[in-house]
Design a binder for these strands. Structure first.
Length: 926
DNA sequence: TTGCTGGAAATAAGG
DNA sequence: GCCCTTATTTCCAGC
């Protein structure tokens, strides 16, 4: 791991990010240690040390590097960095370090000869790196300090897309994945499996493996997730190249191990002949993504922190990247890359001989991480060949994205943070929703085009209230559509569409292993953008699930949402981040044809007595369709379930009339949020839609279905509770506080909600975030780590899990002492949640915020601290009750202590249905 | 020729 | 361990 040592970013001025990195990475710091692990905190905090900086060469990049190089560097750096950041968590310090080292080295190498090097490789990697990691990151950070964030255009540069290709290595491209799929995936596994890699880092493994073991193949694995980091990819990991080897390996490997030998493989092989042999990589793509979360959780990410960091980092990197215009990946359009890979490269790859060639290549293990990577490079192991493939000369030259220089701060909120859709005068709104079905394409397939609007055309997003003349950047990524908090989807990635039919400029970036499409929002267009450049890429379940830390299941997890974000620089120097998610989009082929889907509902709320007719609009409704209303406990158990009456005569494929059933508790004093879904059969259920029961004496509030709904004041409990979001469960947009400042508190210690439960590191979702890095970092650090890598049983920390994240100002705010953030760190949300603090956040919030009755999924209303607090306290009890209930006993009455308002409890017989499954499972159903 | 689709076969996963 | 059903992933073919 020697190598490891160096890269460390020199400066980590950044708070969070830095922390993340630093820590995560540890790398750098890690003194090389290879292996030495630091406590999360340490890492976070520690990383910053200047010493490190100095120590680190960051050569990468840094400053010294020419602009041109910059990109590369970035990439490289990113890579290195990333790992650390992101992954470190996951794997353990050791790993991280390793990885870091790994990358670093790579990076380091480059610096020198960088360019020379197979840039190709770099590119690939780079894309990852670019964003997030990279040493640059560090740099960026520094820079950032110096430079007004606002002015950077970074993202552009960085992102520039390379297409992301980055995602997949070229090598990977191959469908081959088949093998890989497993193997790869497994990468992690393999990793686990015992192969002893010198490095622990997962990432590393891949490489090594290449030759060595099948595992290797997996480039992907490492990749995505950890990589998420992506970052790395670039480098070493990139293994993709490796993969090639892998391929070699694969074969052997396969034979040996492949669990599923044939299947895909066969096909794939078949394809291989023609195509990409690399199979192993098949996952090539796998994009980076590994689900972020997973990643986070997983090895890769350090911890939530990481994410936090990562995002910040990314941002920073982006900013930096700005400088560099080059993007490794850039120039190459994804597809082109793909193609390229497939063809010639593939041949090469396929030949695998490489493998042989590689064969000779010492197992990764043999080399020190750094060396390892280098060696590959030097030797030109398969990688070289691979790389050598002259794919995109222009790659490097790729022009910067057209997008306006966005304002990017290194400290931008992590992608899994819950952000409001509007704040003060600003509102980010989806004017035209995407079609409810869009068949995502696999890497092995060609693009299936851009997501379209149901009425034809494409989705449209507009930022209202922005009167400045500076263009902004709209970020788009694929998010989840389940009941939990919105977060990047582990199994889907946004895919940039280009061509004659695309009128919107965009470029891809990879943040924390999540592809992000950046689209310019121009004042001349009224800050409105038509999203005709976004397709959806499906990653193989096997590739993602095998990653360490991945907690989500791909099977039946085929719904996504388009998530849009915009970061608005404020006069105060802070950045206001807004986010809005689209209606859910069913991405599978089958589902689109069979599963019922509710797009709109005529009512979002109604008094408990029910009886009103509600019209549901959507698809695949049948006369036999049933509409089931469900009240869930925080832990996902069904507290109440009722089949609503439907009017068969009025049932049409696209509309269904249902009578709102009376709520079980007619005495509620505050709105209770429940959900309902349309069921066409055993396994054919629509996604849950939100519905709010109002107290009998409360005047009915007209609700608008869908996206348009605008919560009054998000902050207040009232809004939360009441807010009848027309949106489906999934809609998790946070309502923004009426006034930007109202809910923000500098210090805001937020509940670590997610962090506790979710793998993902990101913990709090800040609404405004301060650019200042310092503080930021700290906060991050703590929390992040907590979870990463760990998958939590849904049941365990019910409340915490989905508890909405409060909006908050970035920890980074100068005012805030890092300490404040700490709460986030705490592993357990429940305990950790600083209620008091939260409350402080929203002054407006009513004193006794009655959280919506128990049912409400925490996730829905993240905003109010009170709410969170309440959840933390109140919800636990319920779960218990439920658990006690026998699973089978479906409707069963138990004295329930229900708290409508949070204060008054009424004992009411409750029908309890025990739901053994987690939310996830529920979602998956069956 | 490339990209986008729709369909469906081949496999894998679950029950 | 086998069979059946369902879900996933890869291929094909047409426009």
């Amino acid at each position: 791991m020697p190598s490891t040592s160096f890269p460390v970013p020199s400066k980590f001025p950044l708070g969070p990010q830095a922390a993340a990195f630093g820590s995560g990475e540890t790398l750098g710091p890690a003194p090389p240690a290879s292996g030495t692990m630091k406590s999360a905190e340490e890492e976070h905090y520690s990383y910053a040390p200047p010493s490190i900086g100095s120590a680190l060469p960051l050569p990468t990049g840094h400053p010294s590097l020419p602009a041109a190089c910059h990109d590369l560097q970035t990439a490289a750096a990113g890579i290195s960095a990333m790992p650390a950041a992101s992954h470190s968590a996951g794997y353990g310090a050791a790993v991280d370090s390793a990885s870091s080292g790994y990358f670093l080295s790579a990076g380091g190498i480059r610096p020198d000869g960088a360019p020379a090097l197979e840039s190709p490789r770099i590119e690939i990697t780079s894309y990852l790196g670019l964003h997030h990691n990279s040493g640059q990151f560090f740099h960026d950070v520094e820079v950032e300090d110096v430079i007004p964030s606002a002015k950077r255009s970074p993202s552009t540069a960085t992102l520039s897309l390379p297409g992301l290709e980055a995602y997949r290595d070229p090598a990977c491209l191959s469908p081959a994945s088949s093998l890989s799929s497993r193997s790869c995936n497994s990468e992690a596994s393999s990793y686990e499996s015992n192969y002893s890699y010198p490095y622990t880092s997962p990432q590393t493994s891949p490489w090594q493996s290449p030759c060595v073991s099948p595992k290797t193949t997996d480039p992907e694995e490492g990749f995505p997730r950890g990589l998420g980091a992506c970052t790395l990819l670039g480098s070493p990991r990139h293994s993709p190249c490796t993969s090639p080897c892998a391929s070699v390996t694969e074969d052997s490997w396969l034979g040996a191990r492949s669990s599923r030998p044939a299947s895909p493989c066969n096909k794939r092989k078949h394809s291989l002949n023609g195509r990409a042999p690399c199979s192993p990589r098949h996952s090539p793509t796998p994009s980076p993504h590994g689900s972020p979360r997973a990643s986070v959780t997983g090895d890769t990410w350090l911890g939530s922190t990481t994410q936090y960091t990562s995002s910040a980092i990314v941002a920073a990197i982006n900013a930096l990247s700005t400088d560099g215009s080059l993007d490794p990946g850039d120039g190459v359009p994804v597809k082109s890359r793909k193609t390229g890979l497939e063809h010639s490269p593939s041949a090469a790859l396929k030949v695998e001989p490489a493998g042989e060639d590689l064969g000779p290549t010492p197992p990764a293990s043999d080399f020190p991480p750094e060396d390892f990577s280098f060696q590959h490079i030097r030797k030109g192991g398969f990688c070289d060949q691979y790389l050598s493939v002259p794919q995109h000369p222009y790659q490097w030259a790729k022009p910067k994205s057209l997008a306006p220089a966005p304002y990017l701060s290194p400290s931008l909120p992590a992608l899994d943070w819950q952000l409001p859709s509007h704040s003060g005068p600003y509102e980010l709104r989806i004017e035209v929703q995407p079609k409810s079905h869009h068949r995502a394409h696999y890497e092995t397939e060609g693009s299936r085009g851009a997501v379209k609007a149901s009425a034809g055309g494409h989705p449209v997003v507009q930022l209202h209230g922005y009167l400045e003349s500076e263009p902004l950047t709209l970020q788009l990524f694929i998010g989840t559509a389940d009941d939990r908090l919105l977060r990047p989807h582990a199994f889907y990635q946004v895919h940039r569409i280009t061509g004659k039919t695309v009128s919107t400029t965009s470029h891809e970036a990879v943040l924390c292993s999540t592809k992000v499409l950046e689209i310019p929002l121009l004042p001349e267009n009224n800050m409105r953008a038509t999203i005709d450049c976004a397709g959806i890429l499906k990653l193989r379940n096997s590739d993602i699930e095998l990653r360490k830390g991945e907690t989500d299941i791909g099977r039946k997890n085929t719904r996504v949402r388009l998530v849009f974000r915009v970061h608005i620089p404020q006069p105060s120097g802070r950045t206001l981040s807004l986010q809005v998610a689209s209606n859910p989009i069913e991405c599978s082929q089958r589902s689109a044809q069979e599963l019922p889907l509710v797009e709109k509902q005529s009512a979002d709320s109604y008094p408990v007595m029910g009886g009103k007719k509600m019209v549901l609009s959507g698809h695949n409704f049948l006369q036999d369709s049933k509409v089931i209303f469900v009240e869930k406990a925080p832990d996902g158990h069904h507290v109440w379930e009722m089949e609503a009456k439907t009017d068969r005569d009025l049932c049409k494929p696209n509309s269904l009339v249902v009578e709102i059933p009376p709520f079980r508790n007619q005495r509620i004093t505050s709105p209770v949020q429940v959900s309902f879904y349309v069921c066409n059969g055993k396994r054919k259920r629509s996604q849950h839609q939100h519905f709010t029961y109002l107290p009998a004496n409360v005047p009915v509030i007209k609700t608008e279905p869908s996206d348009d709904y605008e919560p009054a004041a998000a902050c207040g409990p009232a809004s939360q509770g009441l807010s009848p979001l027309p949106r489906p469960y999934y809609s998790q947009q946070l309502a923004a506080p009426p006034d930007p400042g109202s809910c923000l508190v500098a210090g805001f210690p937020l509940c670590p909600q997610r962090s506790a439960v979710m793998p993902s590191p990101r913990s709090a979702s800040p609404k405004l975030h301060d650019l200042s890095s310092a503080v930021y970092s700290k906060g991050i650090a703590g929390p992040a780590h907590c979870h990463l890598g760990l998958a939590q049983p849904a049941g365990e920390v019910p409340a915490a899990q989905d508890v909405p994240r409060p909006l908050a100002v970035h920890p980074g705010s100068p005012q805030q002492p890092p300490a404040v953030l700490q709460p986030q760190v705490s592993p357990r949300p429940s305990s950790s949640c600083p209620l008091g603090g939260q409350r402080t956040l929203c002054p407006d919030s009513p004193p006794a915020p009655p959280p919506p009755a128990t049912q409400e999924p925490p996730c829905l209303q993240p905003c109010s601290p009170a709410h969170l607090a309440a959840m933390g306290r109140q919800q636990h009890p319920l779960p218990k009750v439920h658990r006690d209930a026998s699973p089978t006993a479906r409707p069963r009455s138990l004295p329930e202590v229900r708290e409508d308002s949070g204060r008054n409890l009424a004992l009411i017989p409750v029908t309890v249905k025990r739901e053994p499954e987690d939310l996830d499972q529920l979602y998956l159903d069956d």
